[in-house]
Design a protein around this nucleic acid. Structure first.
Lengths: 271, 271
DNA sequence: TTATTGTATTTATCATGATAAATAGGATTA
DNA sequence: TAATCCTATTTATCATGATAAATACAATAA
């Protein structure tokens, strides 16, 4: 005889209404091809549209807001607006995922070593004079110049801007995303051992300066192959230094409020 | 004289209370080193703890639930439980992000080409006899055997399981994550042109079968270098076929409910 | 023109409760 | 023993409103 009462081993938790409504809104966006900037009806109308109470529609909107798919504003003609999911938000979620994994510095760098040379090579044909200037300014800005340890670490982080400028110039959105992700991870998560002498930091900075300079020169000459090779060598060397500096990943949950630096302030705009 | 009224150009939208509470909970998790399975206090107590109303604490918990950091259950000893963020959720967010970008099949494959050979190579020393059997079973299961087009497309998706088995065996969590991500994208997002003749699909299947077979053989021989080379060739070939088959990415928002396939049902467990 | 002020609109947060559904664990029954 | 039922607990959803804060736009004043 069949078991009439459902077996409770793999219990199917009934989806919540707020989540179903959030899905409905997503369907709406896909079907009506809503673009960033387009507005959803206001709360009251959404309530009526989906036949749910205030708290349910609010939770649904909260879900979409957390996912970065809408922003909500008060006031006349306020309410939910479709938004392009920001990179920061995506990075946050990726961090949430990796928080429970045991990612080491070595892991990050072995992936970086595979991707970054190709990213740089692909960027070369698209670099503008403005990009070259930004790259040059970055190299100068990162010239090792003493100071306290905090400043030295900050300089190591600014070295990463060099790579972000190249990333921004690469037309491949997927590769660009992967490399930006890695840059963000390194920027925010690398913690150097407090007991590393300043000379080590300086040596790392000098090595970066040399590599970046050579890459810039090859890029100016539009020598794609040379840029790729130089970047590969740069990755190997950086990996070596990071290990020497006892760089490790800061294993903690990143807070939303730490993600609020508008990308526009960091990088030259490029749609 | 200073401008006493704040300049409204870069208006700082005041963070919402629910978001602040969600952050506080994250801090709590980090500080107390809460692990998956640990429970948060129940709603009422959290209300009192943070001094907020029911709706606010519910929105905060909703935020954490959406992020995949907690699950919520009803009943005695119910409430919020810390959860390890599932891969599916992370994939969903990545899709949300890429939905607004213009990612092509070529982009995916050019990244895949860089990562997958290294992933396979790194997996070789860790493959168990059970893995070899699973790989062999997968190859047999994917032997092109006619049928309607839907079945052929499904077989192309099952080809990806081969790569997921290799990914699961690679000890590098970051590289593994990247490759699993790509596999998911290909599995769920690749749509083939309706007008592709079955012969093309079959040809693709045969090519895969041959490549996978050769890779398996080299892996059994623990020949890391050969596996890397074979995989690289496989990637190039697959990329060629996908273009021939007019494979393209299904550009739409993926719904949460489409992400509910437990990974345990797809892959042999491996902590 | 330009800056300020007012006003109506809409979300944010709080408050309070009611009913429904899910669930763990104990009590009961075959 | 093993299946079933009961019950207290806790979230899910709804309902209804009140007050506060943010905001677009129009009206007003300098």
């Amino acid at each position: 005889m069949e078991n009439t009462t459902a077996p409770r081993l793999l219990r199917v938790r009934q989806p919540k209404r707020a989540d179903l409504v959030a899905e409905d809104v997503k369907r709406l966006v896909t079907q009506h091809e809503l673009k960033p900037g387009d507005k959803l009806p206001m709360e009251k109308d959404l309530q009526k549209l989906f036949g749910v109470s205030k708290s349910t529609i609010r939770e649904a909107l909260k879900s979409l807001e957390v996912q970065g798919l809408i922003t909500i504003s008060t006031g006349p003609s306020g309410g939910a607006t479709i938004a392009e999911v920001p990179l920061d938000r995506t990075f946050l979620f990726l961090q949430n995922y990796l928080f429970f994994k045991n990612v080491t510095m070595k892991d990050i760098y072995s992936a970086r070593r595979l991707l970054e040379p190709e990213l740089a090579a692909g960027a070369v044909p698209h670099l503008t004079e403005r990009d070259f200037e930004a790259l040059e300014a970055n190299i100068e800005n990162c010239h090792p110049a003493g100071g306290d340890e905090a400043r030295l670490v900050r300089q190591r982080q600014e070295d990463l801007d060099f790579h972000d400028i190249l990333a921004a110039a690469n037309p491949d959105p997927f590769l660009r995303f992967l490399c930006q992700m890695i840059n963000e991870m390194l920027r925010r998560l690398v913690v150097y051992s407090k007991h590393t002498p300043a000379e080590e930091h300086t040596a790392f900075g000098c090595a970066n300066e040399k590599c970046h300079g050579a890459i810039l020169e090859a890029a100016r000459a539009r020598d794609v192959g040379k840029v790729r090779d130089l970047m590969r060598a740069h990755m190997d060397e950086a990996s070596f230094y990071v290990e020497r500096l006892n760089g490790e990943l800061d294993g903690r949950l990143i807070l939303d409020s730490e993600m609020n630096i508008p990308a526009a302030l960091k990088l030259p705009g490029r749609s």
